[in-house]
Nucleic acid binder design. Structure first.
Length: 477
RNA sequence: GCUCCGGUAGUGUAGCUCGGCCAAUCAUUUCGGCCUUUCGAGCCGAGGACUCGGGUUCAAAUCCCGACCGGAGCACCA
């Protein structure tokens, strides 16, 4: 029987009466990106669909290679809230280290884990030959002793690791006695030098997923092996593994490949203004550019959870955003690369314009007989041509250099309509992903601080700052 | 090399579990038209796909086999 297709995410496999608990578990080593948004939105949406719980967990257990950023913890929370996905619970792994140590010890006592002193390359050869290393068979008393020393910092980095016993003869080499803890003697931005033995992601998330009662995990398909590794751990402890779904990589065509670490480097080098630079695919940047969270939600829900790697165009997000923003955005005139146009007749004018085509509200634009038109329109202009200055009047272009026009009293049909800026216009700078546009806009723009407006025949922008009658706007689309 | 996933229009996506109502959904893109004192807006319309080969079957996008293509893992990263 085919069912009616529901809008939104596909149903989750669910045990009867089960309460859904979802999690999004980033490493806060930078600001959340569109990729993070997918995780936040889909997980929170599932929690919402089933009246369940959504947990934000920071998997911040690598103070070296994927070093967390102190500010990023709050950023993630802000971004979640902005995306209407406020977590029901927030967990920080680096603050729960003692918990992981307890389980590690329990595992050692059960003979399910052992401290291994093989150098990485030596263990690799054991692994390749499917034979256990000498440390695997050490008794638990000795193991516990070594483990305690590991925790105290007796050993140096790379000298010892804690391994989970799996199956050294496993077909898949990735599954053979994986590392649960390694020594990293580097200060952690959050807990300082308190710990030297850090759990790997596989260990930490395995323990946490169980403790937090996670029912469904959605993870990148590159983490497929994680589940297989973690299952050994769950078996050792007699736990039930959550249902796992995998998804492929998502890439925005317009942004190409980027990693958080790479982004961070470039920002620190000054290649970008910051994490909210309009050229970046971070949520901070999109927020600054005036994207609406509901548009981003719809966008990612429509993409859903599939295992293929996908390259999606921002156009899809733009379309979604346009639908949401069009009704809200007031209209204003802005001309890029302005050109002065002299009106031969009259001294001053008052134009009454519509703030929004489907609302009655109006705005008033006053100007002398000098107005500005955009350089783009100017380039297409010919002498003798008739154009309409929207909401002002129709004019015949008399000469191009200097640019002079004569007012026509009888409005005609099919006249090209262009926007213009008044003599008292204010300076406007628009920051776009592709660069910066400078021009002049009508003075009322200054009253829209923080709002998304439409610059007619140009696009949507968010008014980011107004300083001394100079406006900076961020280009939405 | 070994292990494992996946392949539906330009881009995403639904359908595949339980074969028929699928000459295949929806969105976006593209193209055309309309509306207009904005547009990259809106409205209307059109185009466009089941990777290939074989098999099973009355019937295959859906099941099976093979090929091809793409991706991932094999870390003391997440």
């Amino acid at each position: 029987m085919k069912e009616e297709r529901k809008a939104g995410l596909p149903e989750l496999p669910l045990a009867k009466g089960e309460k859904v608990v979802m999690r999004f578990a980033p490493n806060p080593n930078g600001a959340a990106t569109l990729g993070s948004a997918r995780g936040i939105i889909v997980n929170s949406e599932y929690a919402r669909m089933y009246g369940g719980k959504f947990i934000l967990r920071f998997d911040d257990t690598d103070p070296v290679l994927k070093r967390p950023m102190l500010e990023a913890y709050d950023w993630y929370l802000e971004d979640c809230t902005w995306l209407d996905a406020e977590p029901d619970e927030v967990v920080v792994a680096s603050e729960r280290m003692d918990l992981y140590y307890e389980y590690a010890e329990a595992l050692i006592k059960r003979g399910a884990a052992y401290v291994c002193f093989c150098p990485a390359d030596v263990f690799k050869t054991y692994k390749e030959q499917k034979i256990p290393c000498p440390h695997r068979t050490v008794g638990d008393v000795e193991n516990i002793e070594s483990w305690k020393k590991m925790l105290k910092g007796v050993y140096e980095e790379k000298e010892a690791v804690l391994r989970i016993k799996t199956d050294m003869a496993s077909e898949d080499p990735a599954l053979r006695d994986w590392v649960a803890f390694r020594i990293l003697k580097r200060e952690h931005p959050r807990v300082g030098k308190k710990y030297v033995a850090w759990p790997t992601l596989d260990f930490e998330s395995a323990i946490e997923d169980h403790l937090l009662g996670i029912t469904h995990i959605i993870r990148g398909k590159d983490l497929l092996k994680s589940e297989k590794r973690q299952r050994f751990l769950y078996d050792h402890l007699g736990w039930k593994y959550p249902i796992t779904m995998l998804w492929g990589k998502i890439k925005m065509q317009e942004f190409g490949k980027f990693s958080t670490s790479e982004l961070r480097k470039r920002i620190e080098r000054g290649e970008y203004e910051g994490w909210d630079d309009p050229r970046l695919p971070t949520l901070k940047a999109l927020r600054r550019r005036g994207f609406l969270p509901e548009a981003i939600r719809k966008f990612f829900i429509s993409i859903g959870v599939t295992q293929t790697d996908i390259a999606v165009s921002m156009k899809n997000l733009y379309a979604e955003n346009r639908k949401a923003v069009d009704a809200l955005a007031s209209r204003y005139f802005f001309v890029r690369n302005p050109k002065e146009l002299k009106l031969k007749d009259g001294q001053s004018f008052v134009a009454k314009a519509l703030k929004h085509p489907s609302r009655k509200e109006s705005r008033v634009i006053r100007t002398s007989n000098t107005v500005y038109i955009s350089g783009d329109d100017f380039a297409k202009l010919n002498a003798g041509q008739r154009i309409r200055l929207k909401f002002l009047c129709d004019v015949d272009i008399e000469s191009i250099e200097p640019l002079v026009a004569k007012i026509v009293e009888t409005p005609a049909k099919d006249v090209p309509i262009i926007q213009w800026a008044p003599s008292e216009g204010i300076k406007v700078v628009v920051k776009k992903p592709e660069g910066i546009d400078k021009g002049i806009g009508e003075p009322l723009i200054a009253s829209e601080l923080g709002n998304v407006v439409q610059f007619e025949r140009y696009g949507f922008v968010r008014i980011d700052s107004v300083v001394e009658k100079e406006v900076v706007a961020y280009f939405t689309q």
